[in-house]
C-alpha cells in the first residue's frame, strides 16, 4: 500500500530537514543568547538594539524573512554566502533566515530565565569583583538556561516545523518533497499522513529527551 513512495527520496528530504533544524538551532542559540545579554546589559545602545531586534523580527512572518534573504540579499544584492551552487546558496539562506527569526524567541525565553535568577546571585558575584560579562556567563546564564529548558524545547519544536518554510525558496527538505508528491500522486491523505508521521518522529523524542534533561539540570534553591 506504500508503493506511492517508491521513486522518492523520503529519507534524503527529512535529512535536509534535520540539517536545517540543527544548524539553525545552534545558530539561534548563540545569537539569541547574545541578544539576551544585550537586553539585560548596562549599555543603552545595545539594550535598544536588542529590544528593537526582538520586537521587529518576531512580528514578521517567517516566510517574508526567508523570501527576503533569498530574493533581497541573494538576487538583488548579490550576496551568495560563499557558494556558487544554487541549492547550497538557498540552503544557507534558509538557515540564515531561520536563525534570524528563531533567535528572537530564544532571546525572550532566556530573558525570562534570567528573571528567575534571584538578584542576590548577581550581587554576590559583583561583590566578588567579577565583571559584567563574567557575572552573566558564570553565574546568571548557567542558572537561567537550566530554568528554561522547557520553553527552549518549545522553540526547538517550532523551529523543526518552521523549516518547512524553506520550501518557499526551493530547499529540497521534507515539505518541498511532499508538495511535488501530492502533485504527482493521487494519494493526498496517505502522503500527508506519512509526512506528519515523519515530523512527529523528529519532535516527539526531542520533547521527551529535553523534558528529562530539564528536570535533571533544574537548580535547587
Amino acid at each position: 500500500m506504500f508503493d506511492f513512495l517508491s521513486g522518492y527520496d523520503l529519507l534524503g528530504a527529512f535529512w535536509v530537514t534535520v540539517q536545517l533544524t540543527l544548524l539553525s538551532a545552534a545558530g539561534s542559540l548563540v545569537w539569541g543568547t547574545l541578544l539576551a545579554g544585550m537586553r539585560v546589559g548596562p549599555v543603552p545602545l545595545m539594550r535598544g538594539f536588542g529590544t528593537a531586534y526582538v520586537n521587529i523580527v518576531r512580528n514578521i512572518p517567517l516566510t517574508v524573512i526567508i523570501l527576503f534573504t533569498s530574493l533581497g540579499l541573494n538576487q538583488t544584492l548579490g550576496v551568495n554566502l560563499g557558494s556558487q551552487n544554487f541549492d547550497t546558496i538557498n540552503f544557507r539562506f534558509a538557515v540564515l533566515g531561520l536563525i534570524a527569526y528563531t533567535s528572537a524567541f530564544v532571546c525572550e525565553a532566556i530573558r525570562s530565565g534570567i528573571n528567575t535568577v534571584p538578584v542576590g546571585q548577581a550581587e554576590a558575584a559583583r561583590a566578588l569583583g567579577l565583571s559584567f560579562t563574567q557575572v552573566l556567563t558564570l553565574v546568571v546564564l548557567p542558572q537561567a538556561f537550566r530554568s528554561v529548558v522547557g520553553p527552549l524545547t518549545n522553540v526547538l519544536i517550532a523551529l523543526t516545523k518552521n523549516t518547512t518554510v524553506a520550501a518557499a525558496i526551493g530547499v529540497a527538505e521534507a515539505a518541498f518533497l511532499m508538495k511535488s508528491m501530492i502533485e504527482n500522486e493521487a494519494q493526498l491523505l496517505a502522503i500527508s499522513a506519512v509526512f506528519a508521521f515523519g515530523f512527529v518522529c523528529l519532535t516527539l523524542p526531542t520533547g521527551l529527551i529535553l523534558g528529562w534533561v530539564g528536570k535533571k539540570v533544574a537548580v535547587k534553591r
Binding site: 534571584p118 542576590g120 546571585q121 550581587e123 554576590a124 558575584a125 561583590a127 553565574v139 548557567p142 542558572q143 537550566r146 537548580v219 535547587k220 534553591r221
Partner: peptide, 11 residues
C-alpha cells in the same frame, strides 16, 4: 560582603 540571604551560587 556577606548578605542576609547568603546568596551562594545555587548551581
Amino acid at each position: 560582603m556577606v548578605f542576609q540571604s547568603f546568596n551562594l551560587f545555587a548551581h
